[in-house]
Design a protein around this nucleic acid. Structure first.
Lengths: 194, 194
DNA sequence: GTCTATACCGTGATAGAC
DNA sequence: GTCTATCACGGTATAGAC
């Protein structure tokens, strides 16, 4: 959270998203934002239309990152189970790389139009991954004794929970890879030995 | 959300917790609560000291349910990996049985004293389960190629994510058991066949 | 136990000077 | 591009009648 002499919507966004994630979106006032940015409330309105626009910008960035995964070659070609593993790993990676933005996306509750739009887009992403699970199960590569809808939800639950504790300061790229490995391993092979 | 002729702190709590979970705690005003309860704002103050007391009551109930698990016979006796599996299943079950209360617990951000107390208690619970994982790994019952701290976090991430989609109306006890089974299966054996 | 009325403050947002 | 001053509104909470 570096204080700047002058702001662009982009650099102001970085500050705002940090505060949103600390206090929650509803718990953050324009006064909080102005103090964190080191400029007055009214100056913020020079850069963005208001609080909700900051939310929309942040969420768009998170969604762009996630949907980008689905267009990567390894996500569109090959056996479904391998594409699923790729998407799982990459979702964890994007989540850590774009942590504050994805965190905000995952926490919206649907109180405003912007939040409802975010939730709808997120559902689209989940559904595309759910289709992958279904195909992988049909291929016989995933265990048949589980509802794939339920499995999708638990898989995303595990991945998304990373935002609750991951902090980029500690560890860097090596740590990110270790986390992504653990997610893939636990989701596909489980905790138990043998 | 049944409207009542008269309220007790307990019955008012049930209404409040539903609204908190729909709109978020910070996004819920006393006006929202009064409309949902069908009584005036000031009448609410007759039953509780304020909004934050409702939060504290709700969170206490969730924590009591969770810590109760750790005192069950199957959680204190036997091989660590079996105790861990029991705690995993029961945590999922308690989460579904006390859904609105646990949901609220899992969403607090630490803005007030009450919220910070809740987060500290939750960490205590997590740490006790983390100790179980560590013991099970030492017994050779869990895979050695994963950091157990990380595994604990992913395990709880998976369990806790149930609050994001589980709705008690649909399915009843049979469905709850199916969900708990799926959690245990995925966490311990993984998604992949063979 | 519930109500109406209201105190008092913090909120998101705007006007206009520099 | 930033500021101070200000607005109208909605927030939590209280007073006091019924």
């Amino acid at each position: 959270m570096v204080k700047r002499d002058t702001y662009t919507p982009e650099s102001l966004l970085a500050v705002a998203v940090e505060v949103f994630n600390e206090r929650g979106y509803d718990g953050t006032s324009m006064e909080h934002l102005s103090r964190a940015a080191g400029i007055s409330k009214s100056s913020i309105y020079h850069h963005v239309r208001g609080k909700e626009e900051l939310l929309r910008l942040a969420i768009s960035r998170a969604l762009d990152g996630l949907f980008g995964i689905l267009e990567e070659p390894a996500a569109v070609r090959g056996r479904a189970v391998d594409r699923l593993e790729h998407v799982t790993r990459r979702t964890a990676e994007v989540l850590m790389a774009e942590l504050p933005y994805v965190t905000l996306l995952l926490r919206v509750r649907g109180n405003t139009d912007t939040e409802r739009w975010a939730m709808a887009r997120r559902r689209e992403f989940d559904q595309q991954v759910a289709a992958l699970l279904k195909q992988a199960a049909a291929d016989g590569d995933l265990r048949a004794d589980m509802d794939m809808r339920l499995a999708t939800r638990l898989l995303f639950g595990m991945i998304n929970s990373i935002v609750e504790w991951y902090r980029p300061e500690a560890g860097g790229a090596a740590h990110r890879e270790q986390v992504a490995d653990a997610v893939v391993r636990m989701a596909f092979a489980g905790l138990r030995t043998g």
